[in-house]
């Protein structure tokens, strides 16, 4: 059970690292938001699932599941608000052609 928890958390951390690399490498705010949504949707879920498995069926398990649902409901709203603010203040995506 502990090994399942560890492997879930490590998978989550891999996605968190890839998301961070993406934030550094991608050119503008719009593309960086894609890397951010990668971190949110898979990094967070695997780390939280790993913690839930590690915890077993206690009150903390319930708390982690509630946080998981809240993450999935709130993250798209926050990314959308950020991107819409960038768009309305006049930023446009940079055109990087496919090489």
């Amino acid at each position: 059970m502990t090994w399942l928890a560890i492997s879930l958390i490590v998978i989550g951390l891999v996605f968190l690292v890839i998301g961070s690399i993406g934030i550094l490498r991608l050119p503008d705010v719009f593309s960086r938001a894609h890397a951010l949504s990668l971190t949110d949707s898979l990094g967070a879920i695997f780390v939280l699932l790993g913690l839930a498995v590690y915890e077993g069926f206690t009150i903390n398990f319930l708390r982690i599941i509630v946080v998981l649902i809240l993450v999935y409901l709130l993250n798209p709203v926050i990314s959308h608000a950020t991107i819409r603010a960038a768009y309305r203040s006049g930023l446009r995506p940079s055109k990087k052609e496919n090489k």
Binding site: F30, H34, S37, L38, S41, L42, N75, P76, H80, I83
Partner: peptide
Amino acid sequence: GNSITLTPGTITVEVAPGELV
């Protein structure tokens, strides 16, 4: 809009009835 934003690779920028950016 939320499903599009949750899926990595696509993000909803603006929403209006009948049209999404």
